[in-house]
């Protein structure tokens, strides 16, 4: 094998935090200010004003800016979809089939970026994880230890799961069925907990969005934001842990 991926590097490249949360721009930053083809100046349009060639999106572009959305956690999903469709009509490779290789390549790259952005922003959890990375520059932290308050419970659960896996191939038995019922109850408990976490996340999302109205340069605002970001990150990684447990249970016990 000899395979040794560097774990954190699979994340998309992220720009430095910029507080332009409430400005709603119709312009997208392009890779450079000059058209790659005719060298004329490109002013934030996707297509060159002179030669109408498609321009590559800037490497510094973040998904919120790409979709012309403020950096909020509750977003207008209708608008997100509409912008996605509009930009797809601009960038999709289907419309560059008769163009030259450079334009095809740019269309492919822009489209791939757009699709990834849409997928992340559409999902509230992925959207929050992305925003935290963007704001705090934090590396996505997938917790490998269970959350403190779940520790005992999870240990027992792991043991039961292991026993279940050993028993299952031998066909049904009363012991297996009792264990199945127990594990299903456990799963319901975890699902409830997951729902609670999501509720408190919702609460924090609203808090975050309200903060965006505050003057961004104040150290007080900065501090509040950092506290919130840390809080959200904590819940998000606990939630990921719980969800993985639930998935594991579902897969094993059906």
């Amino acid at each position: 094998m000899g395979l040794f991926p560097v774990p954190e590097s699979s994340e998309p490249e992220i720009m430095e935090p910029q507080y332009q949360a409430t400005t709603k721009s119709r312009e997208l930053p392009m890779a450079r200010s000059m058209c790659w083809h005719c060298q004329s100046e490109v002013t934030g349009e996707y297509l060159c004003g002179q030669c109408v060639k498609v321009q590559p999106l800037s490497k510094d572009l973040d998904y919120f800016s790409c979709f012309q959305l403020p950096r909020l956690l509750n977003i207008d999903e209708q608008q997100l979809e509409q912008t996605f469709y509009e930009l797809s009509r601009t960038f999709h490779p289907d419309f560059y089939s008769t163009k030259d290789e450079s334009e095809k390549a740019i269309s492919l790259g822009n489209s791939a970026f757009l699709n990834t952005g849409y997928r992340i922003l559409k999902d509230p959890i992925q959207r929050a994880e992305y925003l935290i990375r963007l704001e705090a520059g934090a590396v996505k932290d997938i917790r490998s230890n269970p959350p403190a308050d779940l520790f005992e419970e999870v240990l027992e659960l792991q043991e039961d799961l292991e026993t279940f896996r050993q028993l299952a191939p031998n066909g049904t038995s009363s012991e297996l069925e009792a264990l199945r019922t127990k594990l299903q109850d456990e799963r319901e408990g975890l699902e409830k907990r997951q729902a609670e976490m999501e509720k408190s996340l919702q609460h924090k999302f609203r808090e975050w969005d309200q903060l965006q109205g505050d003057p961004p340069d104040l150290s007080q605002t900065r501090e509040k934001k950092n506290t919130l970001l840390r809080g959200m990150q904590e819940i998000l990684s606990n939630r990921t842990y719980v969800r993985n447990m639930v998935d594991d249970l579902l897969e094993t016990t059906g």
Binding site: G2, L3, S10
Partner: peptide, 24 residues
């Protein structure tokens, strides 16, 4: 996942002077 789409992965070595990794 909606296509086109892309993903990046960074690779490095775990032995000094290693000149290749096999990717499957």
């Amino acid at each position: 996942t909606t296509i086109p789409t892309s993903a990046k992965e960074m690779f490095t070595t775990y032995v000094d002077g290693q000149t290749s990794v096999d990717i499957h």
